[in-house]
Design a protein around this nucleic acid. Structure first.
Lengths: 331, 331
DNA sequence: TGATGCAATGTAAACGTTTTCATGCAGAAA
DNA sequence: TTTCTGCATGAAAACGTTTACATTGCATCA
């Protein structure tokens, strides 16, 4: 790989001048600029992002970190798609890290990202008070949180309105005539699990239905726990007539259980899921779902992050996007 | 961030000795080693991967590139999962790039990856004779291709047996009594589209069924083309009684069309898809599918890549994994 | 005793940039 | 003519590592 030195030699100038041409700063004579540009072309010179990054943290070296909890979950994949698209448009590359809800792994990835000298980080933190993450923010790393916030820290946040989203779904079920509505939640330590429970409770309350503890089950946000918790619910003496599932994977797990038991949807049991998927309409039956604008979440996050990289002093923004209930025929 | 210099100063030694301790090479006195380790802990020192990478290409700086065609496709997401898992276990970080079948974008990403001085690359190339990629291989970058090969180049390849996979699916349809079997393929320039067509033809031939051109449609490997091409097929004067779909997204698209037309599966039309998904059993009806071991493809690729990084002279391996027909009730 | 070798450590160059400071030279102002 | 200004460029340090080479001190050996 040709280096700046090679270019300088070939053009008969010093590397300083080459740098000036590349970064369009300082004065440089038209003739020499031409010579240098020719040399760059001839040698197919490409600046080393690594050297750039090492030399100056001040100037952007165009590398972002993305740290997400679970790449198995189509929701995060969509967020990632949004991130990737906008990052690419702004000439940023991304280091993708997936910590699978494992805090130790998250910590290790944070250390790696720090050591890679990224310009900024988009993260859905495992815990709202992650100490390492908070420290990195305090040390000046531009950070945007998605899907979950970070307590007491100077970060931008992009969220959806989980409470309203859940409320709408459950309210819709009640208005459709269902009486006993269960909620299969994700990990209890994830804020969105709790916020969705809050929406669930609010909807019950607004419709004068008593809250029943046995109808709410917290699991681990994965497919398997959807399968198992749904099984538990259906085994109740007085089983639910509708289920509100807390995320994508839980929904798919619950569907698996329902199908295995040969129950009809929605006659025997209705289901509304949090998170829509591209193929929700191809499910059996087409799934009624609360849609999160996942791709837009990703895009907004990159937008905010780049702004913050350019202006670290800008005051923080908490952005809340709306969800949308997509009515199909599972309810 | 503390640097090696800080550590050296605090321990009262030179940076060279610190480096020796860190990399466990050369002799160093037990007492000084202890002093240095203490200083490292005290300062929470973390080596800069960037500086490491800049300094020596010879030693691995633990960064891999992953360049995939389409992050919307659950198959590639699974491959990515496999890659991420094994990379993490080996202390590698990955730069994830998604080129969305756009050759220009692929080129740009390759340039970025080169400029990031990655240790190795896992790629599903847009074209089998990608000149830039071939050049990078020739220049010594360790590369493993997944899902698709690279002509005439010194790379390891991890593939599945597309021909047999398709053969098995179509043969199964025929044996089940279907007579007019259509094939909705992906992009015509992607090798796997053609290999699966080959398997399709072989199965027809083996069962004495004539090949009919109108039953094979090539699209762009995406959801939308699944929708449209399925529509075209169903509109034929003499429509198929079964469809073999060329990938995940096409399958989901085709299902959408079939559902929209209120056709019964498999009574009115049967369907077998290439690529299984975690939620295939929750589809309507549960989908018969050719399963590719996507996660294992990712893992094997990392395995081969790390081997090649450690031993660039090792002769190349072409690894072919088997597919598996998962019989459910869509056929 | 003087040479030899080895263990332990240090010095400094190198990787490819950015950036500060210095320098040369031309034209303008005095 | 002399001094000043400003444009165009170069020299060199710095970022945080690795690594080839040099140095020191001490034990061993003939």
């Amino acid at each position: 790989m040709a280096s700046m030195n090679d270019v300088a030699t070939r053009a008969g100038v010093s590397i300083a001048t080459v740098s000036r041409v590349l970064n369009n700063n300082g004065n440089v004579n038209e003739a020499t600029r031409a010579k240098i540009n020719k040399a760059i072309k001839d040698l197919k010179y490409q600046p080393s992002r690594v050297a750039k990054r090492l030399r100056s943290k001040s100037i952007s070296s165009n590398l972002l970190g993305v740290l997400i909890p679970d790449i198995e979950n189509p929701f995060y994949v969509d967020v990632l798609r949004g991130i990737e698209e906008l990052a690419y448009n702004n000439n940023y590359a991304i280091i993708m890290c997936n910590f699978g809800q494992d805090e130790k792994k998250e910590k290790l990835y944070l250390e790696i990202l720090q050591s890679e000298a990224i310009d900024g980080l988009i993260v859905a933190p495992a815990r709202e008070d992650d100490p390492l993450l908070k420290k990195m923010v305090k040390d000046g790393l531009p950070v945007v949180c998605v899907d979950r916030g970070l307590k007491d820290s100077n970060v931008d946040v992009v969220l959806v309105d989980n409470v309203t989203g859940a409320f709408t779904a459950v309210d819709y079920l009640i208005k459709s005539g269902y009486k006993r509505i269960a909620y299969i939640a994700g990990l209890v330590e994830i804020p969105s699990s709790l916020l969705r429970e809050k929406g669930y409770r609010k909807a019950l309350e607004a419709n004068g239905i008593p809250f029943e503890k046995e109808l709410v089950r917290f699991g681990d946000s994965k497919h398997k726990s959807g399968v198992e918790l749904c099984e538990e619910l259906l085994k109740l003496t007085n089983p639910p007539d509708a289920i509100f599932t807390g995320n994508n994977l839980i929904t798919l797990g619950a569907l698996e259980t329902i199908h295995k038991r040969k129950l009809r949807i929605p006659e025997d049991i209705a289901i509304v899921g949090f998170d829509d998927m591209q193929w929700s309409s191809s499910l059996n039956p087409p799934l009624t779902a609360v849609r999160q604008p996942a791709i837009e979440i990703g895009k907004r996050a990159v937008e905010l992050l780049i702004q913050r990289i350019q202006d670290p002093e800008r005051s923080c923004i908490q952005m809340t996007l709306n969800t949308q209930l997509i009515e199909r025929s599972s309810s």
